[in-house]
Lab assay of single mutants.
Amino acid sequence: MQIFVKTLTGKTITLEVEPSDTIENVKAKIQDKEGIPPDQQRSIFAGKQLEDGRTLSDYNIQKESTLHLVLR
């Protein structure tokens, strides 16, 4: 499925993911596309910070959902 990741600069990245993917996985995909190390990424969805060990389905993130990426 496709999800979108919006950065603070307003750029939107499209990722191909599975509901079973962990947040860690997703951060690795963002690193592949953007070169941002996962330890600098904070992902926010529906106002909640997403934890690395959880999966997209844990957070009820579905296709075409938009995550927000904040850098630390």
Rank of each mutant, 00 (worst) to 15 (best):
E64S: 10
V17G: 01
T14F: 06
V17L: 02
K6M: 10
D58M: 04
S65E: 08
D21A: 06
E18P: 05
G35Q: 06
K63E: 12
E51A: 07
A46T: 04
E51W: 04
I3P: 00
E24N: 08
E34D: 14
I3E: 00
Q62F: 08
K11H: 10
T9G: 13
R72V: 14
V17T: 00
I23Q: 00
H68T: 12
L71M: 11
L50K: 00
N25E: 12
G10W: 03
P38C: 08
A46P: 02
L71Y: 11
Q31Y: 15
M1H: 04
T9Y: 12
V5L: 05
I3L: 06
G47D: 08
K27T: 06
P38W: 15
K29D: 03
D32Q: 13
Q41H: 09
L15I: 11
K29G: 03
I44M: 12
L69D: 01
T14M: 12
K11T: 09
L71D: 07
L15F: 03
H68W: 14
Q2L: 14
D21S: 06
I3F: 00
K11A: 08
D58F: 14
V26T: 02
L71W: 11
L8P: 14
A46H: 13
R72A: 13
T9I: 07
T22C: 03
D21V: 02
K27H: 09
D39R: 08
P19Q: 06
D39F: 10
G35D: 05
V17Y: 03
R54A: 09
Q41V: 15
T9C: 13
V5T: 00
I13V: 07
D32C: 10
S20Q: 10
S57C: 03
P19V: 06
I44Y: 15
L8A: 13
T22N: 02
I44N: 04
G53Q: 10
P38G: 10
T12W: 08
V5G: 00
N60V: 04
S57I: 08
L67T: 00
Q41S: 09
S57T: 06
G10M: 03
K11S: 07
L56P: 01
E34I: 15
E16W: 14
L50P: 02
A28Q: 13
F4E: 03
P19F: 05
A28N: 11
K6Y: 08
I61W: 00
T7K: 02
I44H: 07
L67V: 07
I44E: 09
T14R: 11
G53K: 12
Q40W: 11
E64M: 11
E18V: 13
L15A: 01
P19C: 08
K27P: 01
F4R: 03
L67D: 00
E16T: 13
T66F: 07
H68M: 12
K6H: 14
E16A: 08
I36V: 10
N25L: 13
L56K: 01
Q31N: 11
L50F: 04
Q49N: 10
Y59K: 00
E24K: 11
K6T: 10
R42N: 13
I13L: 09
I36G: 09
R72C: 10
M1I: 11
I36Q: 05
L8Q: 12
E18T: 13
A28K: 15
L8I: 11
T14W: 06
T7H: 04
P38D: 10
T7L: 15
Q49F: 15
Q40H: 12
S20C: 07
E64I: 03
L8F: 13
R72I: 14
K63A: 15
G47R: 02
P19W: 07
Q41W: 15
T66A: 03
I23R: 01
E18D: 13
V17N: 00
S57R: 12
Q40N: 10
T7V: 10
G47C: 09
T66D: 02
K11I: 10
L56E: 02
A28Y: 12
E18Q: 12
T7R: 05
L56V: 06
D52Q: 04
R72L: 14
T9L: 08
R54G: 07
R42A: 15
K27F: 11
I36C: 08
E24M: 12
I36T: 08
F4V: 04
P38Q: 12
Y59L: 05
V5K: 00
T14I: 12
E34H: 10
K27Q: 05
I30P: 01
Q62D: 07
G10N: 06
K11N: 08
D39A: 10
L50S: 01
T22W: 04
L71N: 07
T12H: 05
I36M: 08
S43P: 15
G47E: 07
K6E: 06
L50W: 04
A28G: 07
R54H: 12
N60E: 07
G35A: 05
Q41N: 08
S65Y: 08
G53V: 07
E34M: 15
G47S: 04
I30K: 13
F45L: 05
Q31T: 09
F45Q: 04
L69S: 02
P37Q: 08
T12Y: 10
F4Q: 04
I3H: 01
K29T: 04
T55N: 03
T14G: 04
L8H: 14
S43K: 06
K29I: 06
P37C: 08
A28E: 10
Y59P: 02
V17K: 01
A28D: 06
K27L: 14
K11G: 06
F45K: 01
T7F: 15
N25Q: 14
F4K: 06
P19E: 08
G53N: 13
Q2W: 12
I61L: 03
M1L: 05
L69E: 06
Y59I: 02
R54F: 12
L67Q: 01
L15D: 00
F4M: 04
Q2H: 12
L56R: 00
H68I: 15
K63N: 15
G35V: 04
E16H: 10
P19K: 07
G47L: 08
E51M: 10
A46L: 13
I23T: 02
L15G: 00
I61V: 08
R54V: 07
E16L: 13
N60P: 01
L71I: 12
D21E: 08
K33V: 12
P37S: 11
L67W: 00
L15E: 00
G10I: 06
P19Y: 07
V5F: 05
